[in-house]
Amino acid sequence: MKITKILYLIVVLTIVNACATNPFTGKKTLAIVPNSQILPAAFQQYDQFLKENKVVTGTNEAELIKRVGQKISKASERWLNANGHPEYLEGYSWEYNLVKNEAVNAWCMPGGKIVFYTGIMPIAKTEAGIAAVMGHEVAHALANHGQQRMSAGQIQQLAAVGTSVAVSGKSQATQQLVGTAFGLGTQFGVMLPFSRSHETEADKIGLTLMAIAGYNPDEAANLWQRMKANSGGQAPPEFMSTHPSNDTRIANLTAWAPAAKIEAKKFGVTSFK
């Protein structure tokens, strides 16, 4: 039992000592793995992905992705400078690429490496729709969600070791039962809610960024209406998903849009695309 207590103490101390305050959320966030390790690896993986996939270049859509990305990231820089965090983006290297893939998806790696798949373009539909997606992806990078997921994974592994040690003297059946309970409990009670909270944060931050960049934040809810229609209503229950439901996102984005416009007004933006 002493070993078990020591392992759990290590977990607690790791969490306490590895928290950093994010300027966009105002929350203490997990940062066990430093960006000095994460960003070089992320940039290398991104470059490898581009080599192995069909990057679209020289088209209006490809140029639009880059143009909107630059506007959104510039909006984040304006917000950081205005709020006393001019150094926050040190080590970031923004890049925006359109990749030929029919998946309705876009993603961002730590440090600002963003990919849009061609499959999401008909759903995004307009420049403002692209800005809504771009704002969300840029927000993931700004909120260090990749770093938090890696940190949470390491804590989960430490906790699993502690649980395994705690029941090591029990019967095999008990060990299997506890192991299953731990896996399900951490997945549905910790990791999935953790992921959904990240998606919600990215939605809210992204809404503000697109407004500061001059895009109508009302269009974000319209985008998710199209996402919902495209899915045909096929989605797992929210508690089993890494993402909030379409209806939850639509309701949140609709409720947050007025505040995003008010924030944009602080930067002299009073009309929107």
Rank of each mutant, 00 (worst) to 15 (best):
T254P: 08
A211K: 03
A82G: 13
K113P: 03
M121C: 12
Q156V: 07
P244R: 03
A159Y: 00
A131I: 08
I155R: 05
S168Y: 09
A75C: 00
A211H: 07
S197Y: 12
A166F: 04
L253H: 03
A106T: 03
A259I: 09
L13Q: 00
E238W: 04
M150Q: 15
N17P: 09
M210T: 06
A202R: 04
K265L: 06
L192D: 07
G232R: 01
D203R: 10
A20W: 01
G26C: 14
G119Y: 03
L64V: 08
I123K: 07
E238T: 14
T14W: 00
E102R: 04
G58I: 15
M191V: 11
G162F: 02
Q147A: 12
E90R: 07
Q175K: 15
F24V: 14
W256Y: 13
R78E: 10
N222H: 13
D203F: 10
V178E: 12
A128I: 08
V178R: 08
P244D: 04
A166G: 06
P237A: 08
Q175D: 10
F182Y: 09
F194N: 01
I114C: 07
I205K: 01
P237H: 13
R78H: 11
T59D: 11
V56L: 01
A173V: 11
L192E: 06
E87W: 03
D218E: 13
R78F: 04
V269K: 14
G206R: 06
P237I: 05
K100E: 15
T208M: 12
S151Y: 01
A257I: 10
A131Y: 00
Q225K: 06
E199F: 12
Y8F: 15
L223Q: 10
L9I: 05
